[in-house]
Computed example of a mutant assay.
Amino acid sequence: MRSRRTTAGAALSAAIGLVLLAAGCSGTASGGKPADNTQGSGTGGPAVLSLATPMGGSEEFDAFLQNVRTLSHGSTKISVQFDAHHKEGPDFEEQLLNDVQSGRVDLAALGSRAFDIRRAPALGALTAPLLISSFDAEEKVLGAPVAERMIREVDGGGLTGVGLLPGSVRRPFGAGTPLLGPQDYKGRSIGIQESKVADSTVRALGAKPEWFGAGSSVAGFDGFEQQIGSVNGSRYDAAGMIGTANVVLWPRPIVLVANTKAIERLGEDQRKLLQDAARRAVHGAGADLREEEHRDLESLCARGQTFAAASPAQLTALRKAVQPVYDHLARDRRTKEYLDTVTALVRDVPAEPPLSCKD
């Protein structure tokens, strides 16, 4: 397996370098006057781009950063700001997109779900419920030609798509009773991150969706959807909810998006380099993401997290219950085309193995 991560020492060195760049070269992702972050472009010096993310680390786009360093031979540098708009409300990703659009930051790495409400609804095909049910399936889709078409959905309004990267998969957790079949969702409040597809799915299952910000408390919900890494990092297991071992609701693909003016200030070769760096980061992502999830799962199991598995009948019932979400998505011609393509790509890819705290 080709690892997308660096060794601990190399990762630390890279992190220190990025922090120094962020302190001296980038604009802000939380307000203030927009800065010309692409300094050096056209002057013979390196182009320095600022990138903000609501995530607390760069594990899921480390390969992209490494590829930029390698392919550019130092002529393009990226400074990273973590936790952008973290805990600033349910619309934290929309706030970050506004930062990119206004030029306060050059690039962002965030979930594709942020686009499905109004900016690029066709990207909802990537998070259709129970469709992409494994890391391998996500890698296959984002490594296919359809991903090159889908990233162009982001273009417009001051934004330019750079690439789509595989991200963590999201699973349901229930309070008291695990969320196994549709009957377990009826009348319950389910915490979700801001997404039209997630909202529609929860409603189709008879529950009430409650949007909440990254890292915010889940204690007031009857259940929530989240990746294992966030459950571990945010200590959501303290709420005592039971995870569903064999249901992946949807993945959280990462969109790399740029401010259009900032990326246009780069030379054509540098723009293509960023896109190539993103494409190359897709290969090998599935295995690495699974390994990351396994490490987080070990931590959760050590703290007493429990899981329950849905029966074949419950899985079938879930698929039937969410069909209205597909019917709605398919009303848009482009979204339907993407759905059909993604469905064909993942048809023979096995679902992610059930999670378990047993050796």
Rank of each mutant, 00 (worst) to 15 (best):
G74V: 09
G229P: 03
E60L: 05
D106F: 04
A219C: 08
P54Q: 13
Q305I: 08
R152H: 07
T53A: 03
G57L: 14
A308W: 09
S102R: 07
L274D: 02
A285R: 01
V342S: 01
L130M: 12
A330T: 03
G40V: 06
A281E: 00
S79P: 03
A262G: 09
I78P: 02
F212G: 14
T244S: 10
A198Q: 10
A114S: 12
S50E: 10
P350I: 14
S356L: 02
D237W: 14
H86L: 12
T53N: 02
E352Y: 11
G233L: 10
A198M: 10
G284Y: 05
P34C: 14
R170L: 14
Q193P: 01
R295V: 12
M241C: 01
Y236A: 04
A317R: 14
P34E: 11
A351L: 08
F221K: 10
S134Y: 10
P182Q: 12
G45Q: 15
G45C: 15
R203K: 12
A35W: 08
F307W: 04
T7F: 05
L205I: 07
A198I: 02
L329V: 11
S112A: 14
A198P: 00
T7W: 02
S3P: 05
G215R: 08
G143V: 12
P354L: 14
S133Y: 00
L71F: 05
A8N: 08
G191N: 07
P145M: 13
S168L: 13
G161C: 08
W211Q: 13
E59S: 09
P209S: 09
D340F: 01
R69P: 01
V282M: 03
R171T: 15
D222L: 11
S75W: 04
Y338C: 06
L318T: 07
S311T: 14
E194H: 15
P253Y: 04
L123T: 05
Q227Y: 05
A175G: 03
A239I: 03
E93P: 06
Q305H: 06
P178T: 07
L131I: 11
R152C: 03
F92I: 04
K336P: 03
A204E: 07
L339W: 04
D340Y: 03
A23R: 01
F115A: 09
D91C: 08
G42A: 12
F173H: 10
D327E: 13
A147P: 01
D276Q: 12
E194M: 15
D276S: 11
L51R: 00
N37M: 15
G229N: 05
L300C: 02
S230M: 11
T244Y: 07
R252S: 09
I228W: 00
F173C: 11
L273T: 04
L329N: 04
L165Y: 03
T76I: 09
